[in-house]
């Protein structure tokens, strides 16, 4: 399988009175055709990593190739092959929605007529046609985000980078965004996205790298990552009076890995649930069991297990 992105001991130190090591010797392999997620909290080094892959940040050491081209050796040619949606709204405010896309096509060498045709078709298929002659400031956040994606893919890039594409979107727009990305993926575009939404990474990505303090803690499929949290099942018990007294006997049940005492709930991390559930209910019953919910571990659990802290502070 050929690699869309290959980073080798890639580092970035921002110079200054107190140099900041934003990315600390990471190795990354993004297979062609994948949706790849970089997951990490604020300041983890996601934007810096994407910046180095997209020719915007010059690596301090190490090497990164994008579609086989070294980004520091041939930035213009790398740019030709990638599309980038940055973390900010960078729409051209002096041009209409239509012109934002049409001029973008011209920057990538399309002629006047093909550029116009491409802009028209894309706006149509992304549901932005009726905004074609509007100015970008008048778009809602979700529409602006969609237009940024339209613009980024207008020159038929092989590889699309998106830096926190769903930040600031309401749940509905977020789901619409996921559909757009899945559609692009189906049409053969490799996608690299950063996010700090676990659910987003879980839903979209075939591979996820968890990054923290500039280092990649782990990189695998979402399923494999979740299996790392040796628990198969998380059972949440809503109790009238959750207490150490109830927790102790539960902890001693075979197959229960860990019991956490929370606000009105007891959380059990179990290796498997077959046959165990009736015993749990039996033990918890006297403490006033009101509700029971069973779920699989999430990437959030993975992150907490890896770093000892929650992703969203």
């Amino acid at each position: 399988m050929s690699l869309a992105v290959h980073a080798d001991k890639l580092s970035k130190v921002y110079p200054g009175p107190e140099p900041v090591t934003a990315v600390d010797g990471i190795d990354l392999e993004v297979p062609e055709g994948a949706i790849f997620g970089l997951l990490g909290p604020n300041g983890a080094g996601k934007t810096t990593t994407v910046g180095m892959c997209t020719t915007r940040v010059v690596p301090s050491s190490g090497r990164v190739t994008v579609t086989g081209l070294d980004v520091t050796e041939d930035p213009p040619m790398v740019r030709k092959r990638i599309g980038v949606v940055s973390q900010f709204n960078t729409l051209d405010r002096s041009c209409t929605v239509f012109d934002n896309v049409a001029f973008h096509c011209r920057y990538f060498g399309m002629g006047a007529r093909p550029a116009k045709r491409r802009a028209g078709e894309l706006l149509e298929s992304f549901g932005l046609s009726d905004k074609a002659s509007a100015m970008p400031e008048t778009l809602s956040g979700g529409m602006a985000q969609r237009l940024l994606i339209v613009r980024a893919v207008a020159h038929y890039p092989e590889l699309l980078f998106l830096d926190e594409p769903s930040a600031g979107l309401d749940p509905q727009s977020r789901i619409a965004l996921w559909d757009v990305l899945l559609e692009l993926h189906r049409s053969g575009t490799t996608i690299v996205l950063t996010t700090h939404y676990m659910e987003e990474a879980d839903r979209l990505c075939q591979r996820i790298a968890i990054i923290d303090f500039g280092k990649i803690l782990v990189c695998d499929t979402p399923e494999a990552l979740k299996q790392q949290v040796s628990a198969e099942t998380v059972v949440e018990l809503k109790l009238q009076q959750p207490s150490e007294e109830v927790a102790r006997p539960l902890r001693e049940l075979p197959g229960v890995l860990r019991v956490e005492l929370g606000d009105g709930v007891l959380r059990l991390f179990m290796r498997e649930r077959d046959g165990l559930l009736p015993r749990v209910v039996e033990v918890a019953q006297p403490a006033g069991l009101r509700d029971i919910s069973i779920s699989e571990p999430t990437l959030e659990t993975v992150f907490i297990t890896l770093t000892g802290r929650a992703l969203r502070e």
Binding site: T55, S86, T90, R93
Partner: peptide, 12 residues
């Protein structure tokens, strides 16, 4: 506004 971004990312 970081509007120049799109032109910075042009292939030149």
């Amino acid at each position: 506004t970081r509007e120049i971004e799109d032109r910075v990312m042009a292939p030149l």
